[in-house]
Simulated assay, not measured.
Amino acid sequence: MNANANVIIREGTIAECIEISKNIPEFSNNLYDESTYHQRLFNTQHLILVAIKQQELVGFKIAYDRYRDGSLYSWLGGVLPRHRQDRIASKLAIEQEKWALKIGFQSIVLKTRNRFRNMLIFALKNGFLIENIEIKENIDDNRIILRKNLIIDK
């Protein structure tokens, strides 16, 4: 799909995403097993992207048609800490947006938590707007729902 700055973005597999997840600190307490991935992606349009740098899996992004309302739900993704300055998350997001537009999605929706400030900042810098907040007992666990419109109304 994209081979920019020695990073290759291509469609990937659930197994590759699980392998990458094991080395991402933010997932250390919440690793999903393979059956969870299959349940989420079963019988729905979805996209699994992986990033490869120097033949090493360094990041991934998974999205699917969760709400069936014209939005693509960007469910899960991450980049290995030592590669976070390589703009890999941006490259994955760009490829995801291209695919979403090609398929006909009108927007991308994602959820993050207060504790994942880097993800929140990344989303805001990349054109997402806060749409809603789910309040949890611990403020760090509040879910922040963001949306980026892909099709501009004229």
Rank of each mutant, 00 (worst) to 15 (best):
N138P: 00
L31E: 04
D140F: 13
W99T: 04
A3M: 14
K53N: 08
Q96Y: 01
T36M: 13
W75D: 03
S107T: 06
E137T: 12
V58F: 05
I18W: 07
I48M: 05
W99S: 02
Y37K: 08
S28F: 11
S21H: 07
R66N: 10
I24Q: 11
I94W: 01
E11P: 03
K125Q: 14
R68C: 01
R84I: 01
E131P: 03
Y73S: 04
Q39W: 03
I152V: 15
R68Q: 12
H38S: 07
E56D: 11
F105W: 01
G59S: 10
R84G: 03
P81Q: 01
N138I: 12
I152N: 14
N114A: 10
H46E: 03
K53A: 14
I62P: 02
I14D: 04
I52D: 05
L72N: 07
G77L: 10
E95T: 08
L124M: 13
S90K: 13
L57H: 11
Y37M: 10
A100Y: 02
I94C: 04
N2C: 06
K98L: 09
C17M: 08
I152P: 02
R82A: 10
A93S: 13
I135H: 06
E16A: 10
E26W: 00
N29D: 14
F122V: 03
N149C: 06
F122G: 04
E56T: 10
Y37W: 12
V7L: 06
Y67S: 05
E11V: 10
R82I: 05
A89R: 04
L47I: 15
R115C: 02
I135C: 02
F42S: 15
E95H: 08
E131N: 13
F105T: 01
L124I: 14
E134N: 10
F116R: 02
G59P: 08
I108E: 10
Q45S: 11
I133A: 00
N142D: 15
A51T: 04
V7C: 12
L31D: 00
Y73P: 06
E95S: 14
I139P: 15
R113T: 11
D33K: 12
L129S: 14
I24C: 10
L41Q: 05
Q55K: 15
T36F: 14
L129Q: 13
H46A: 11
I62D: 04
G104Q: 03
L41M: 06
K102A: 11
I133R: 14
R117H: 07
L92N: 02
S90V: 04
K102E: 11
E34S: 13
L150D: 01
H38Q: 15
V7Y: 06
I144E: 09
C17L: 08
N142I: 07
I62N: 07
I133L: 02
G59K: 08
I130K: 14
G59D: 06
I108Y: 01
I18V: 13
V50P: 05
Q55R: 12
L31I: 13
E131D: 11
E134D: 11
I88T: 03
D153G: 09
L57C: 05
Y64P: 02
I48V: 12
I18F: 09
I18P: 03
E26F: 04
K53P: 00
K53V: 06
N30S: 14
W75F: 02
I62C: 14
R143V: 09
Y73G: 03
H83L: 00
A100S: 08
I14S: 09
H83D: 07
I48R: 04
E137K: 12
N138K: 15
N118L: 07
I144F: 02
I18M: 15
N132F: 08
T13Y: 09
